[in-house]
Nucleic acid binder design. Structure first.
Length: 429
DNA sequence: CCTAATGATTCACG
DNA sequence: CGTGAATCATTAGG
């Protein structure tokens, strides 16, 4: 970097020597006479310039004025304008036509959809709500995040609008400024109204391209915000105890066919104040995890089974209360499904323990109670120690139903993990 | 801090 | 499309 100055210094004598514009160092050897002549010329030129500048600007002004006031001037300008029109402008005009910008339209649409542009405040929150609803309908309990999202969105919106306004104002100002300027200049040079118009449209195009940048960055901001919001949605919250209980209750009381129908899901969702997709997620997870390691869920299963059994008993004893988590589905499809595959078990259950219930059972409750009872039975019947119970359960819970899985013999997996440790674990409340 | 639990997401399949 | 399976990412508990 500082090579350069040093070089210049060291070579100053030579380097500057031949420079024509610098009269001060003309004593460089060879070109003596020539240099003197040039010096003379330059001096003259400088002198002339000085005199011109010093001389009358006034005079020039006066001449201009005279020209402007000449009576032929308008006509002349008209002609010149025409010529201009025919040449320059026509050429420019040819390349001016542009297709309606698809990208701009896309941006506009998106901003409108996100509620950034479009009508005032109300639109914003409505759009935010719509966005939230669209993103899975998780409108139940993430109100904090939701309001956060809304606040951020309205912030973006505000910035967008102020910027847009600023741009518009600047555009208008600039346009009028240019128009005035051109009008001013039209006195001194040929400018047709058409040309002004064209200039204005050029200005507008420039500004709209700036606006497009604004829109683009706004879109980006919204996207980022949105993705963050979605990420926040991914931030899971454990369901509350009650919800888990309800879900588990349903799961274990429909263990033979733990596939809630759409209506059942809706009902569960309502009961647990979660969304239907959350219910689906829960059941998906539950099924796979239960199946994967039945032993681990044994205690839970027994617990819920016992509970629902008691519940069912009470219900059927009282006769009137249709409170148990049975659904049309469990009565219909699951029933037939189960009957065909494990009718024997069903019968055996009935014959063993079902007597007391059988009389009072309502059709809809049969399935769930069969599931329930099976658990109770297996619990009470074979519950000598953890290991045997474990080995006993794993086949029965699933294979007997022939149902919702293809018996991948999980006992080998479950027994080492849960067996020796005695089935206790925690009280799992 | 580590680990298990758990809700959500993704991908393949029928 | 609903599921199963694997996986991710966060939470809760030690």
């Amino acid at each position: 970097m500082d090579e350069q100055p040093r070089m210049m210094h060291s070579h100053a004598g030579v380097g500057m020597a031949g420079h024509p514009g610098l009269p001060q160092h003309m004593q460089e050897g060879t070109g003596g006479a020539d240099g003197d002549g040039r010096k003379q010329d330059i001096g003259d030129i400088l002198q002339q310039i000085m005199t011109i500048t010093d001389q009358s600007l006034d005079e020039a002004q006066a001449r201009k004025h005279a020209l402007n006031c000449h009576r032929m001037k308008p006509a002349l300008f008209n002609v010149l304008c025409e010529i201009k029109e025919k040449t320059v402008l026509s050429i420019r005009g040819a390349q001016e036509e542009e297709p309606p910008d698809a990208q701009l339209m896309r941006l506009d649409n998106m901003l409108l959809a996100e509620g950034v542009s479009g009508p005032e405040k109300g639109g914003g929150s409505a759009a935010a709500a719509a966005a939230a609803a669209a993103s899975g309908g998780a409108g139940a309990d993430n109100s904090a995040e939701h309001s956060d999202y809304r606040a951020k969105l309205s912030q973006i919106r505000q910035i967008y609008h102020t910027e847009l306004e600023k741009y518009e104002q600047a555009c208008n100002e600039f346009t009028t400024h240019v128009m005035n300027l051109l009008r001013e200049q039209s006195r001194t040079r040929p400018i047709s109204p058409k040309e002004i118009e064209r200039m204005v449209s050029i200005i507008h195009r420039k500004f709209s391209s700036i606006q497009m940048q604004l829109k683009q960055s706004t879109c980006e901001a919204v996207m980022i915000l949105r993705s963050r919001f979605l990420d926040a949605r991914r931030k899971r919250r454990n369901f509350n105890k009650q919800a888990t209980e309800i879900l588990n209750e349903y799961f274990y009381s429909h263990l033979s066919n733990p596939y809630p129908s759409e209506e059942a899901k809706e009902e569960l969702a309502k009961k647990c104040s979660i969304t239907v997709s959350q219910v689906s997620n829960w059941f998906g997870n539950k099924r796979i995890r239960y199946k994967k390691n039945i032993g681990k869920f044994q205690e839970e299963a027994n617990m819920y089974a016992a509970r629902t059994a008691v519940n069912a008993a009470n219900v059927s004893a009282h006769g009137s209360q249709a409170n148990s988590p049975s659904t049309p589905n469990s009565a219909g499809s699951a029933g037939s499904f189960n009957m065909s595959n494990s009718g024997d078990l069903f019968m055996s259950v009935q014959s063993m323990n079902g007597d007391s219930y059988q009389g009072a059972q309502v059709g809809a409750n049969v399935q769930s109670q069969v599931d329930t009872l099976r658990h109770v039975i297996s619990q009470t019947g074979g519950y000598s120690d953890g290991l045997t119970a474990n080995q006993m359960y794993s086949p029965q819970g699933i294979n007997a139903n022939g149902g919702w899985q293809d018996a991948t013999t999980p006992s080998s997996v479950t027994s080492p993990t849960e067996g020796p440790g005695s089935v206790h674990s925690d009280t799992s409340n």
